[in-house]
Design a protein around this nucleic acid. Structure first.
Length: 646
RNA sequence: GCUGUUGUAGCUCAGGGGUAGAGCACUUCCUUGGUAAGGAAGAGGUCGUGAGUUCAAUUCUCAUCAACAGCUCCA
């Protein structure tokens, strides 16, 4: 007999060799019907694997992330089975589960597959799922594994097996399909009730652009049709939040082929929104001891040779522009830090002067590959809320923590709660991508890790995500469609001070090297606005929104009163507009609602007579009448406290 | 940059070998209307661009540009 400890702490006894599924059945049949996989001693395994020693056990169902992942991974196998049935000879790459759903990379040879084919494939999957095929695990020797896939002619699997250790290779078979797989899998295909294949895309074999491009089919499955319907609704809602769509509708920004790809044009409403964000940041920075600086949009090529940017990105950047006579070369600035280093150097510094915090909304230009451009989130010209802190080594941590505080203050002020703090470190294998000594990197990494820990940040570590001159603490958020973007970033840098030979005179009257902290809480204004739009679905908080109040006279008869009200609102520094068109009130309201104007004042003869305003709140409706002063007080309160829209 | 899909009016989209259509927006007139679309008339497009096939191309073919999805990249 063995002891099984359940999540609630209860310990039950079972025969050795019992499976998680057996245990589930012993608890209740209903539970057993829902079990997708099991976590035994912290490891996710098949619910049908025998347990032979005392263990802790958690039964995984659809509500567990690992349960979903197992189901989706099994769904990838089901899709592979369907593919093989419909397209004999198809070869398979990788087929993992992802955050929502799964994909499988396949090689169809000369054939192509279209969106219409996905319907057939879905139908085949449904048909196969109904056969209740069990997912059967089998341990195989490396030789046998190679033999199987060589015979089958699947070179991708052969390549994968060649890199595996003998003795650690398993196959899973369901129905007539066998795949190389570590597992785990759901007990059988009947759990997969609703299937949606979402899209087809190309993907390089093993993610390397030098390799052959395979066809990737994405899909998602659910335990019932109801959940699939909910998912479809969710996707539709997300699409409505897309900042590219809302940016157009709300007249915030536009693009022009003639101006150039990835070069956003800010329309008046968007520009004003941007300016408000800038003033907000400037105020916060002034309070935190930052000093403003302004630098030009171009800099001598030599500047970037010194910084190392030229060597690293020179050929993948906009190429230098040169003077007509002398042929001097200048680069559009891709970074503000070299300029700021030169500002630091413009006067000798004492240890008493540090830290020096130089801030600039610096517009930078980077060549991004054509296929990378994406709305405002990935552009070729953008403005960073950049600053560089030059400090003594003993000040690094304190400064770093203050910057974290600032970033968190910004996020809080804008109601951003869903973000992750990512510690971006060097690639473990390839160190050639980075400049500077190991010692400096270790110091920088340590400063970041310690500061993040001290602030109690929830962090994830990502290797290979560091900048070439130093590690970063990146604040990541997701867009409406679940794509992850880096917003704020804080970087510790021991390398640029060396390259620029930055110095200060210490208390010992000797020259010392300062440490630099690069930081941008918004990251770029473009990306930040994009994410903000999606975050609030275009319903900006009152302090940011372009038009705060729309004054709606019911007819010409109340026009004079309405104009007076609009005038008084403007005097109170409230962004008010009047809709004096010859239209019915219903239409004016509808349009203001669709434009997501937070407040509407409906003014007719009654209000004019009583000297009050009838207030309507976007999406909420009529709030009744009140004196204008009271309404102004309401608006000011909402603005001062930076309340979110709802 | 790579693979795939798409490109028709300011916007959203229909159509299809014989030189184009809807809704919204816009203009004018009528209407002075009380909390999400009042009525009528009108204006607006060489169907992304360039070639080819054809008596004839916006429609078919090719190239090119751009957008979208994914991959790769991201100081």
């Amino acid at each position: 007999m063995i002891n099984i400890t359940l999540p609630d702490g209860a310990v039950r006894q079972y025969e050795s060799g019992v499976t998680a599924l057996d245990i589930a059945k012993s608890i209740s049949e209903g539970l057993a019907r829902k079990v997708l996989a099991a976590k035994v001693n912290g490891q996710v395994v098949d619910a049908t694997r025998p347990i032979k020693e005392d263990s802790t056990l958690q039964l995984l169902t659809w509500t567990d992330t690992d349960g979903k992942a197992t189901m989706w991974h099994s769904s990838a196998h089901l899709m592979a089975e369907a593919l093989e049935a419909l397209y004999p000879g198809v070869k398979f790459g990788y087929g993992p589960s992802i955050e929502t759903g799964f994909y499988y990379d396949i090689d169809l040879g000369d054939r192509t597959i279209s969106d219409e084919d996905l319907k057939k494939l879905e139908a085949k999957m449904v048909e196969l799922a109904k056969q209740n095929s069990a997912y059967q695990r089998k341990e195989v020797s490396k030789a046998d594994a190679l033999q199987y896939f060589s015979t089958k002619g699947d070179e991708y699997k052969v390549e994968t097996i060649n890199e595996l250790q003998d003795g650690a290779i398993t196959f899973y078979t369901q129905g007539g399909f066998t795949d190389l797989c570590r597992g785990p899998h759901i007990p059988n295909t009947s759990f997969i009730k609703a299937i949606k294949l979402t899209n087809i895309a190309g993907a390089y074999w093993r993610g390397n652009e030098k390799n052959k491009m395979l066809t990737r089919i994405y899909g998602v499955t659910f335990p019932s049709q109801k959940e699939l319907d909910e998912y479809v609704t969710l996707i539709e809602e997300a699409k409505k939040r897309d900042h590219r769509k809302l940016g157009k509708e709300l007249e915030l920004f536009t693009f022009s082929e003639k101006v150039g790809l990835g070069l956003p044009l800010w329309l008046p409403k968007g520009a004003m929104l941007r300016e408000r964000l800038q003033s907000f940041m400037q105020k916060a920075q002034l309070e935190s001891g930052y000093l403003p600086v302004v630098t030009p949009h171009i800099g001598s090529k030599q500047l970037y040779v010194t910084s190392g940017h030229y060597e690293k990105y020179g050929k993948d950047s906009f190429q230098p522009i040169s003077t007509p006579e002398e042929g001097e070369e200048f680069l559009l600035k891709p970074m503000n830090c070299p300029h700021h280093c030169e500002i630091y150097k413009s006067s000798p510094k004492s240890y008493k002067d540090l830290p020096v915090r130089l801030a600039e909304f610096g517009t930078v230009y980077r060549y991004e590959q054509h296929g990378e451009l994406h709305g405002l989130t990935r552009v070729r010209g953008f403005t960073q809320d950049d600053a560089h802190l030059f400090c003594r080594p003993d000040q690094v941590k304190e400064e770093f923590i203050k910057v974290i505080d600032l970033v968190l203050y910004v996020f809080r002020s804008l109601d951003f709660t869903d973000y992750t703090a990512q510690i971006s470190l060097r690639d473990k294998e390839d160190r050639s991508k980075y400049i500077g000594s190991d010692e400096n990197w270790q110091l920088a990494e340590q400063a970041i890790i310690e500061s993040a820990a001290e602030k109690g940040l929830n962090t994830v570590v990502e290797y290979g995500e560091a900048a070439f001159y130093g590690p970063k603490l990146d604040f990541m958020v997701k867009d409406a469609l679940g794509r992850k973007w880096q917003l704020g970033t804080i970087q510790v840098d021991y390398n640029l001070p060396e390259r620029f030979e930055l110095e200060y005179i210490g208390a010992d009257n000797q020259k010392h090297r300062p440490v630099m902290i690069h930081r941008a809480p918004f990251g770029s204004l473009e990306r930040f606005v994009a994410v903000l739009i999606e975050h609030c679905a275009g319903k900006f908080p009152l302090w940011l929104t372009p038009t705060q109040v729309k004054v709606l006279p019911i007819s010409d008869k109340s026009l004079i009163y309405a104009e007076k009200v609009a005038e008084l609102l403007k005097k109170a520094e409230i962004r008010a507009e009047i809709d004096d068109r010859n239209e019915k009130i219903g239409k004016k309201i509808r349009e203001a609602e669709l434009a997501k104007i937070p407040y509407m004042l409906v003014l007719g003869e009654k209000e004019a007579t009583d000297g009050v305003v009838a207030v309507r709140r976007q999406a909420k409706g009529d709030l009744g009448t009140m004196p204008l002063e009271q309404f102004i007080g309401l608006v000011n309160d909402e603005v001062v406290n930076r309340r979110p829209f709802e």
